[in-house]
Amino acid sequence: MSLARRAAGPWRALRWTVAVIYLFMFGPILITAAVSFNASNRSQFPPQGFSLRWWGNALSEEWLEPVLFSLQLAGATAALCVLLGAPLAFILTRQRFRGREVLVALTLGPLMLPALVTGVGLLQFFQYMGLRDYIGFPSLLAGHVVISLPFAVRTIAISLHGLPPNLELAAMSLGAGRARALWEIVVPLAKSGIIAGAVFAFVHSFTDVNLSIFLAAPGQIPVTVKIMGFLEFGFAPTLAAVSVITLIVPLTVVGIMQWLFGLGDFIYGDARG
């Protein structure tokens, strides 16, 4: 039975509170978007007049290049996170073995320690291992995979957790080998979790600042880092327009994936893991 329980008064007060909270959440983001259409060259709100020239600047070579760089980086990060994360998730959810706890700690470690610290550590790693030529895309990719992997593993693990192990046993009892049972039963059933894991890794990589600021190289700069660099010289509305672009990209990716595969459950599930 579902017994709704709510007194009109307190519930209405709660609804107003919630409305104010949503305003708090989205106000600053909407303001950023509004500023990008500002006619004056200062980041003013309310905007003075209407102009698309900041968007013209934002869509020029100078800014499209780092956006594309970030896209490639996030795409590669997502792919690697699934390749590395799916076997990890499977073995961690399904098997008990010596060293499992260590493996869990190693996998979730990058989530427990600040990304900034991992960035500092990686910078030194590439420097002192004689790999300084690889600072740039390779170092960024290594860092992004490491900090995004826990999200992918957790998300995939959640989808595997919901699968009764009996399904694999049933497949094997019907004559499927271990690999066959995995490929034909487990992978299709965990598909939405795997895709959600890839999406989370993509978004995490695309929006990262804390790690990337230590690992970029000239010509190999993620868009977020480039914005940070320019902010030191002032808040031109061009940056507002670029910021909005960095919002649109992950929003589009998630929207498409949601439309194709339905990820809703995992966004929520991610917090439980």
Binding site: S43, T207, T224, I227, F235
Partner: peptide
């Protein structure tokens, strides 16, 4: 908001 880089979310506060 988790989909937006922290920069986008902070920029608005600068403007405010």
């Amino acid at each position: 908001p988790l989909l937006a880089s922290v920069i986008v979310r902070t920029y608005g506060w600068y403007v405010i």
